[in-house]
């Protein structure tokens, strides 16, 4: 097989292109490593921040109503949001917080345990989403009020479900896993 001048030019061009691509890929990988784009910690924090910002956008009106003491309106706003995102953890946690503030302890326990089950960050003291203090308060009161009632009425399914939820929150506060 003989190579003419054009074959040599094409061969040379292919070799130059391959070397250039390799150099580009190698440099790109180095840039990624230097900029930390593939750093899992950074990616996790970015995701958390993005989530926080989105939650703030969605639930901002609820928080505003709650802060000015308009708790019934805040609950209605949550009901409205729940139409689009039923069972969303942040909404469920907010509902539990408001239910507790309005004196519905059993319902607050149900909501808070459901929220923590779907997003464990709410029990994590270091998380920006943390509701640990509230959960501790609810568990303390629940153990005082709900637990004795549930123990004296084993046939009461809902009351015993509330007790199960209380124990769940208690174990999560103590650092227990799912």
């Amino acid at each position: 097989m003989r190579f003419d001048r054009f074959d040599r030019i094409i061969g040379l061009a292919l070799a130059v292109t391959a070397i250039a691509l390799t150099a580009l890929l190698w440099r790109g990988a180095g840039d990624d490593a230097r900029s930390g784009r593939s750093n899992p910690q950074l990616e996790k924090r970015l995701a958390q921040q993005a989530k926080s910002a989105l939650l703030q956008k969605i639930y901002g009106p609820v928080e505003q109503l709650r802060e000015k003491g308009a708790l019934p309106e805040a609950l209605l706003k949550l009901d409205e949001i729940a139409r689009q995102m039923p069972g969303e953890a942040h909404g469920v946690m907010l509902r539990g917080e408001i239910q507790y503030q309005l004196g519905a302890l059993n319902e607050a326990i149900t909501s808070l345990s459901a929220g923590v089950r779907s997003e464990p960050l709410y029990i994590d003291a270091g998380s920006p989403l943390s509701r640990r203090n509230l959960i501790e308060e609810v568990v303390r009161l629940g153990m005082k009020q709900v637990a004795p009632q549930a123990k004296s009425a084993p046939e009461n399914r809902r009351l015993n479900q509330a007790l199960t939820n209380l124990y769940y929150l208690q174990s999560r506060l103590a650092g227990g896993c799912e």
């Binding site: 309106e73 609950l75 209605l76 009901d79």
Partner: peptide, 27 residues
Amino acid sequence: PALDLETMTRDGKITADDFEILAQSPL
């Protein structure tokens, strides 16, 4: 009734922004 406001909101018949709740009784 608070429950009717709740169910009507959940059913999409009204929205939370439609009304001002001037007062609510104890449970």
